[in-house]
């Protein structure tokens, strides 16, 4: 504050210059914030745009999935980090139908994603969280699930079972 300028003969000039400087300063900072915001938001929101992360993964020889049985299989996720540890792995249920067809189900219940368990005697999948039950072909049997089990694409190539996976199956992205 310069008290000496108070009775200035032309008070308009300096104040308009100050106003201009203030506006320039404001504009520079808004510009700076916006420019910083681009990488910040882009960085945080980046995972939203990476859709369709499915790829074909080998599960093992067909012989390890006897016809007529449903067995748990696991695979290493293709899109994983070195520091993922055990969470890089994914489990799935492989059903070898007696007629030779293969069905591969996600372990995640379609209700809220808890892992369903297979009971060979009653030929049912049961979920421990809220009691969802599915038949052996993955169809919804009872309980809160809105649909049958998520079923991955499956193929047999040269005696090996392949599954198209790599993404947490949910109602929005059912494999």
């Amino acid at each position: 504050m310069c008290a000496g300028h108070e009775p200035s003969p032309s008070p308009q000039k300096p104040s308009s210059r100050r106003g201009f400087l203030f506006k320039i300063g404001l504009a520079l900072n808004v510009l700076g914030a916006a420019l910083v915001g681009i990488p910040v938001l882009g960085f945080i929101l980046a995972p939203m745009r990476r859709l369709g992360g499915q790829s074909w993964i080998r599960l093992g020889p067909v012989a390890s999935f006897p016809a007529g049985e449903t067995r748990l299989a696991t695979y290493e996720n293709p899109d994983s980090m070195h520091w993922d540890g055990a969470t890089a792995k994914t489990a799935c249920w492989v059903r070898h139908v007696p007629d030779g067809r293969l069905q591969i189900f996600a372990v995640n219940c379609t209700h809220l994603g808890c892992p369903v368990r297979w009971f060979a005697q009653s030929r049912l999948f049961m979920c421990p969280c809220h009691g969802g039950v599915y038949y052996e072909d993955g169809a919804r049997a009872s309980g809160p699930p809105p649909r049958g089990l998520f079923e991955y694409e499956a193929e047999v190539r040269n005696g090996e079972v392949w599954v198209r996976g790599g993404q947490l199956p949910t109602l929005a992205g059912p494999v």
């Binding site: 995972p47 939203m48 790599g166």
Partner: peptide
């Protein structure tokens, strides 16, 4: 469970799931 709830968001369910998980699966 959180991802399953988020996936029920209309239209952008899958994007919201991946935003929460930071990737396609629950991991590092």
């Amino acid at each position: 469970i959180g991802a399953s709830i988020a996936s029920r968001t209309p239209f952008i369910g899958q994007s919201v799931v991946q935003l929460i998980l930071g990737g396609p699966i629950i991991a590092g």
